[in-house]
Nucleic acid binder design. Structure first.
Lengths: 223, 223
DNA sequence: TAATTTTGTTGATATATATCAAAAAAAATC
DNA sequence: GATTTTTTTTGATATATATCAACAAAATTA
């Protein structure tokens, strides 16, 4: 049940930079928590107290707004969440919610900060991680501003297939409404676009079950 | 002419964390370069060799694409550019172009990396800077996906007024086409929206000259 | 199992925004 | 200063995508 960080197979890459002592310190101070589907892990605008590491299960990272929600990404094991709160405001700039049962390691932000102060390699690894986040956000900005709905949906499906499930068949972990929030389109158009892809023989789908049939065509549509 | 980093009034915040020796080292290794309007400072996808610091003048940070360009932001003095290339790919993920005469300090990336390896406070300051970039990108994602063209144009004008020029009157540093690339709208709609704001008495404008008349209304439109 | 609520689906219609084309103005070049 | 090129402006039109409304199917709850 209890896992030490030194032997954790799903730990984030930056942990490779920690010494035995530091790993022990983190192990002693971490809490392992299981969240159920729909539970909030990080609440946007709340004061940042912890950094979270996903051990298993999928979460959605999203920006909350009165009228319209926006999902930034769906992510799974080995993701590190909350480091972006390490700035002047010390507040989380997005929410994170479990979309299925999720095991998370929660580590006090002061412990992480303290290790950063003593271990430059660890800090550099965090910088690398942040730059990967920036890369993803730049892609998202481009995706939202330059691609039409077919292209966005195709990219989404390929992303699930390639990055999240690593399989041509998978079960969509989110509802049509959430797919709409992830692609910035109306939920009705999510349905229509999926139907359209099915009628063209790009995918087979039934409910949340999806099978990628024509990867090449989807890839061309997504550009 | 020649400026030492220790006395530079426009240096980026992270320089406050450097020791006298480190400041001297940076001063000795930096190059001060003047770019003319239209010249490329950073070329997207090229191998990252330097970090750039803007001493004076304005630049545009943009993503290049065959058919449609996208401007991420216009920024001026004290901005640090190129740190986001400190990841696995070691390539710049965007281009930076001078939109007027710009003085830039160029520092070899190895010098910066070397200082980071020895000075944790400096690394932490870089992390803070990266998180500010992430904040900006999150706002941009929200701005592009949740706001209509009037709202985006209003926000743009207020941003120029508040952040760049710190004045209710200013001269737009970029063309209508570039305003379109910054707000993700057609250049024709940039013209129409500005005309509309003028007819409603929110702004006065003639060519690139702009005066904010009704800050409150613009602020409400931008939400 | 029935009742209720939520989620998904479909077609019709509305609307925001892009595109096209052509003129006017401004800037750059000769 | 005249000419050419580029940028800005305007109006007409096209189109992608959202919205609305009503129904069907699933998932919860009673």
């Amino acid at each position: 049940m209890y896992t030490t960080c030194s032997s954790c197979p799903n730990r984030s890459a930056c942990f490779d930079e920690l010494s035995i002592n530091e790993l022990t310190k983190v192990t002693e101070h971490k809490s392992e928590i299981t969240y159920k589907k729909g539970e909030t892990i990080i609440k946007q605008n709340s004061a940042a107290k912890h950094i979270y590491f996903v051990k298993s299960g999928l979460v959605k990272v999203h920006i909350e707004n009165e009228d319209k929600n926006l999902i930034l990404e769906v992510s799974g094991k080995s993701s590190m969440l909350g480091v972006t709160a390490l700035n002047h405001s010390k507040k989380y700039n997005f929410s994170v919610t479990a979309i299925e049962t999720v095991e998370v390691c929660e580590i006090n932000i002061d412990i992480i900060s303290n290790i950063m102060t003593n271990n430059v390699a660890f800090s550099l690894s965090i910088i690398n991680e942040l730059n990967t986040s920036i890369d993803k956000l730049l892609s998202k900005v481009f995706y939202l501003s330059h691609k039409n709905i077919q292209s966005r949906m195709a990219e989404l499906l390929l992303n699930f297939s390639d990055k999240i499930f690593e399989s041509k068949t998978f079960i969509l972990p989110i509802s049509r409404t959430e797919l709409a929030e992830l692609t910035n389109m109306a939920k009705e158009n999510v349905v229509r676009t999926l139907k359209d892809f099915e009628s063209k023989g790009y995918i087979k789908s039934k409910g949340r079950q999806v099978e990628i049939i024509d990867y090449k065509s989807l890839s061309e549509i997504s550009q």
